Simulated scan of single mutants.
Amino acid sequence: MTLRAGVAGQPISHSLSPLLHGLWIEAAGLDAVYEPFGPPDADGFAALVAEGRAGRLRGLNVTAPFKEQALALADTVSATARACGSANLLVFEEGRLSADSTDGHGLMLALSEQAPALDVRDAPVVVLGAGGAARAAVVALQAAGARVAVLNRTRARAETLSAELGCAVAEPDAVRDAVLIVNALSVRPEIDVDTLRDDAVLMDMTYKPLLTPFLAAGRARGLTTVDGLAMLIGQARPSFEALFGLAPPPVDVRSAALTRLGETT
């Protein structure tokens, strides 16, 4: 029987996950499919989860706006997903649903690939934003030993995140000392890259465009940059293994993703 899995979000047409997983499925010779699902609302997502509980889906990756609902619907939740307050991976097993978050794993893989000289252990790191993406970044970087501070335009949200995860609330000038600045906002941060350390690493969690204005400014300054596509591929790897029971085959999925995005670098 063909194994069915997929990604659920709204909107979903832009998702690169079916491309990545489809290439891995083909290379592994699996009798499986990975489909995009676009439930219109929370009820639609709950109905999709019910399909999984009934044995018609092996699992789902989950993107906005259903990550928090995915966590709430699960029977078992990983410590990472609980700390993040959301889940991007659901696996169905005999009617039961387990939830996990692989976003932080993807972030750390991206850093290891594109900024291999970076060592965040006991080093100051600033995460920009206080939403779900920022939470995942904070959890992963704290686990790696970094001294994480959160900088957000609305300080109250940063203080809430700080109280829940035990990170610091950053003042605007904290970026000057940071070895790593992670942009978890959907907009360009108001940071003067000329004030940053010469060895600072800049990371943007978005991948469209691949070279965001934030990363472009960092490159122009000569700083190391890490793009969101590396993180997307990084979080997809443990998802594939959880869904299909084997590690992703050695396929150059990044090149295929760049082609789909119309990017050349």
Rank of each mutant, 00 (worst) to 15 (best):
residue 211 L to E: 12
residue 105 H to I: 15
residue 149 A to K: 15
residue 92 F to S: 02
residue 112 S to K: 13
residue 20 L to H: 08
residue 120 V to G: 01
residue 83 A to S: 13
residue 230 A to T: 08
residue 225 T to D: 03
residue 246 L to I: 08
residue 262 G to C: 07
residue 27 A to H: 02
residue 35 E to S: 10
residue 147 R to S: 14
residue 18 P to R: 14
residue 165 L to E: 05
residue 217 A to R: 05
residue 187 V to I: 07
residue 178 A to D: 04
residue 58 R to Y: 11
residue 238 P to L: 07
residue 3 L to V: 15
residue 80 T to D: 12
residue 256 A to I: 06
residue 221 R to T: 00
residue 117 A to E: 15
residue 92 F to K: 04
residue 25 I to D: 13
residue 62 V to G: 02
residue 132 G to P: 06
residue 264 T to V: 13
residue 8 A to N: 00
residue 147 R to G: 06
residue 125 V to L: 03
residue 34 Y to Q: 11
residue 95 G to D: 10
residue 178 A to Y: 12
residue 61 N to Q: 12
residue 247 A to S: 13
residue 73 L to W: 01
residue 61 N to P: 08
residue 101 S to A: 15
residue 120 V to L: 01
residue 224 T to V: 13
residue 180 L to A: 08
residue 55 G to D: 06
residue 24 W to H: 07
residue 32 A to V: 02
residue 37 F to R: 01
residue 39 P to K: 01
residue 222 G to M: 00
residue 123 A to N: 08
residue 176 R to Y: 12
residue 143 A to I: 08
residue 120 V to E: 03
residue 162 S to K: 14
residue 106 G to H: 08
residue 23 L to K: 06
residue 216 A to R: 12
residue 65 P to W: 12
residue 44 G to V: 10
residue 223 L to C: 07
residue 38 G to Q: 15
residue 210 L to V: 15
residue 73 L to M: 14
residue 148 V to Y: 12
residue 212 T to P: 09
residue 116 P to F: 09
residue 228 G to D: 08
residue 244 F to G: 00
residue 108 M to F: 01
residue 30 L to D: 02
residue 165 L to W: 00
residue 155 R to Q: 11
residue 195 T to A: 10
residue 81 A to C: 13
residue 28 A to R: 08
residue 227 D to W: 05
residue 14 H to L: 13
residue 134 A to L: 05
residue 95 G to S: 02
residue 126 V to H: 00
residue 78 S to T: 15
residue 217 A to P: 04
residue 172 P to D: 07
residue 124 P to T: 04
residue 155 R to I: 14
residue 1 M to E: 11
residue 217 A to Y: 02
residue 94 E to G: 00
residue 7 V to P: 02
residue 199 D to Y: 09
residue 265 T to H: 09
residue 252 D to C: 11
residue 158 A to W: 03
residue 105 H to P: 02
residue 168 A to V: 05
residue 223 L to P: 05
residue 265 T to Q: 06
residue 141 L to R: 11
residue 93 E to M: 06
residue 263 E to F: 02
residue 213 P to M: 10
residue 46 A to N: 09
residue 209 P to T: 14
residue 34 Y to P: 04
residue 34 Y to R: 11
residue 240 F to D: 06
residue 158 A to I: 09
residue 175 V to M: 07
residue 167 C to P: 01
residue 150 V to S: 07
residue 170 A to K: 03
residue 160 T to E: 14
residue 264 T to L: 03
residue 214 F to V: 09
residue 156 A to C: 05
residue 22 G to K: 00
residue 227 D to C: 06
residue 238 P to W: 03
residue 45 F to R: 07
residue 3 L to D: 09
residue 96 R to L: 12
residue 75 D to N: 09
residue 236 A to Y: 06
residue 236 A to E: 01
residue 118 L to R: 08
residue 131 G to R: 09
residue 158 A to V: 12
residue 227 D to L: 12
residue 223 L to A: 10
residue 110 A to L: 08
residue 121 R to S: 14
residue 170 A to S: 13
residue 82 R to Q: 13
residue 244 F to C: 00
residue 240 F to T: 03
residue 246 L to S: 05
residue 193 V to M: 06
residue 248 P to E: 12
residue 159 E to Q: 15
residue 43 D to A: 14
residue 160 T to G: 00
residue 204 D to G: 05
residue 50 A to E: 12
residue 170 A to C: 04
